[in-house]
Every structure is written in C-alpha cells, then in structure tokens.
Simulated scan of single mutants.
Amino acid sequence: MIITAAHVPAIVALIAGILILIMPRLLNFIVAIYLICIGLIGLGLLRWLHL
C-alpha cells in the first residue's frame, strides 16, 4: 500500500483516537498536534516528506 497525502489525515485520526482511548488526559495535547499537522500539510509545508 502506498501512503499518499490523502491517507495522512485518516492515519493521524486513527492514532489520535487510540491514544485518547488509552489516556483521556492527552485529549488537548493530541488535538493540538493533530490540528498543527493538518495545517502544515494543508499549506504544503511538509512536501519534503514526499506525501
């Protein structure tokens, strides 16, 4: 399976959801990281990752 830019939000959301289930106190931290990552990907600043 080739991971493309379209797959990244789904993978990040899946990992965030699992972490929130395991440790609910991480909710604010995980949401902040998720929003930052989606923002950087949306702006095209993470193209060096070849996503």
Rank of each mutant, 00 (worst) to 15 (best):
M1Q: 09
M1D: 09
I2Q: 14
I2E: 14
I3Q: 05
I3M: 05
T4S: 06
A6M: 11
A6K: 10
A6F: 14
A6N: 12
A6H: 11
A6W: 06
H7T: 09
H7L: 09
V8S: 04
P9C: 04
P9D: 03
A10I: 12
A10E: 15
I11Q: 07
I11M: 11
V12G: 01
A13S: 12
L14K: 10
L14Q: 13
I15N: 12
I15P: 00
G17Y: 04
I18R: 14
L19D: 03
I20W: 01
I20V: 09
I20M: 04
L21H: 08
L21T: 15
I22D: 06
I22P: 00
I22C: 08
I22E: 09
M23N: 14
P24V: 01
R25Y: 11
R25S: 14
R25W: 15
R25K: 14
R25C: 09
L26P: 01
L27E: 13
N28L: 15
N28M: 13
I30L: 09
I30D: 00
V31R: 06
A32I: 08
A32K: 09
A32F: 13
A32C: 09
A32E: 11
I33H: 03
I33K: 00
I33A: 02
I33W: 03
I33T: 05
Y34A: 11
Y34N: 09
Y34T: 12
Y34K: 11
Y34M: 11
L35F: 07
L35Q: 08
L35I: 10
I36A: 10
I36K: 12
C37Y: 05
C37Q: 07
C37W: 08
I38L: 15
I38Q: 05
G39E: 04
L40T: 07
I41R: 00
I41Y: 02
I41K: 00
G42P: 02
G42T: 02
L45G: 03
L46R: 03
L46C: 01
L46I: 05
R47A: 04
R47K: 10
R47M: 07
W48Y: 15
W48F: 15
W48R: 12
L49P: 02
L49H: 06
H50K: 12
L51N: 04
